[in-house]
Write a protein that binds this DNA or RNA. Structure first.
Lengths: 212, 212
DNA sequence: GCGTAACCTTACGCACCAGTAGGTATGCTC
DNA sequence: GAGCATACCTACTGGTGCGTAAGGTTACGC
């Protein structure tokens, strides 16, 4: 509809989002190093110096991607798992939101968890995000425990949360590689493994290594 | 004590192992791309052309690392989890071997699961290794189920195995970053979450999403 | 309708690093 | 102790891609 069929001059905020979209896409397909700034710029329909002008160096650009995707994800989860719900309902809603996010943003997921993990400059950033998530899950378990008058050592609690988060990430990876799969169903399956185990833990059932 | 205080000429097989040791170390610390062949050579106490002569290009070198560490790990696990044992005992021994391996080869673990995942050329290789592991776990669960005359749909079984493997990887990552942690204890904690959940599953208990 | 500021481009410098060419030393065999 | 194979080195090249300098172009204010 526009009278200019070539380019349009767009306000900064819009261009930045386009650039981030392109960056997430290229980073996820090629990997951090193999992705070239030229390709990102081209994919965004813009030239390279604009990327530098708006988002800074390659490293800063990647961090920006990380932040945007990370924020989107944590907000999606936090918004779904309201703290006043019972533990199993909270876990279920959180998982559903999580897998829903991954299903809808497979590229973003790949950037977050496949790329950021290996590259030193970002590993710390990612670890912090993950730690927050683990903290939330641990808090949830703890809350449920206290409601029943029970308690678990802090370290055990945290590790249980860590395991749950890891299992979810693993299934998320599977989901990202299977476009035909249904996020909702994946969440249900995760819930089956996670909750049944967690429920036992909450009820004070523990497994002990065989005596020898 | 040798009369030559400078270097020693060593047979190829020995030097290759030294190079692989150095490569695993440098790859795990720097990441695949940031690692330079010069640094690897220096760390191995040798010059770069030797690395090329023995192990080939950077990509081939990384694959060699991947293979060595992967083989070591799968052999450690397979050797511990004998198929004739009952399911819980098998799972326990497998987990113990797994965490023991990660605790003793933190660098190798980092190469396998943090680096290889992000880089396209190796992701496939790694995925295949992982798939074999998932298959083993799934087979174990299936075996235990049939022993009780039960059955689960193949997809559900596989996803449960996937979740278990993912949770273990997550704890392994935690372990790799906490040198003071005890692998045996970590395995026990993992077993607590995994087995209690799996046991429920095996007993036909399933969780269902709330009706609405 | 003209200045000006923001938007956008082409084209290049520069550093870094994978991979190699060509040559030297050492030990082993007969 | 001559000859050969294998271990090993120094020093270079070539390509790739990040980051930038310097200059065009469009839209908006007045």
């Amino acid at each position: 509809m526009s009278s200019t069929p070539t380019f349009k001059r767009l306000p900064r905020a819009v261009r930045e989002q386009q650039m981030l979209d392109a960056a997430v896409k290229v980073f996820s397909r090629r990997g951090y190093h193999a992705a070239s700034m030229d390709e990102i710029a081209e994919d965004a329909g813009i030239s390279k110096p604009m990327v530098y002008a708006y988002l800074g160096t390659k490293e800063e650009l990647f961090v920006a991607c990380l932040h945007r995707e990370g924020t989107r994800m944590t907000e999606a989860i936090a918004g779904a798992a309201a703290p006043e719900l019972p533990a199993d309902e909270r876990l279920w809603r959180g998982l559903r939101a999580f897998f829903g996010f991954v299903g809808a943003h497979r590229d973003g997921w790949a950037v977050l968890y496949r790329q950021a993990r290996g590259e030193q400059p970002f590993a710390g950033e990612l670890a912090a995000m993950r730690a927050r998530l683990v903290e939330v899950v641990a808090g949830m378990l703890d809350h449920a425990l206290r409601a029943e008058g029970r308690e678990i050592a802090g370290a055990d609690l945290e590790l249980a949360a860590y395991a749950l988060v890891g299992a979810s990430e693993s299934l998320a990876d599977w989901l990202a590689d299977h476009p035909e799969a249904d996020p909702e169903k994946t969440a249900t399956r995760m819930m089956n493994v996670a909750w049944l185990g967690a429920d036992q833990l909450l009820n004070g059932v523990t497994w002990r290594p065989p005596e020898r």
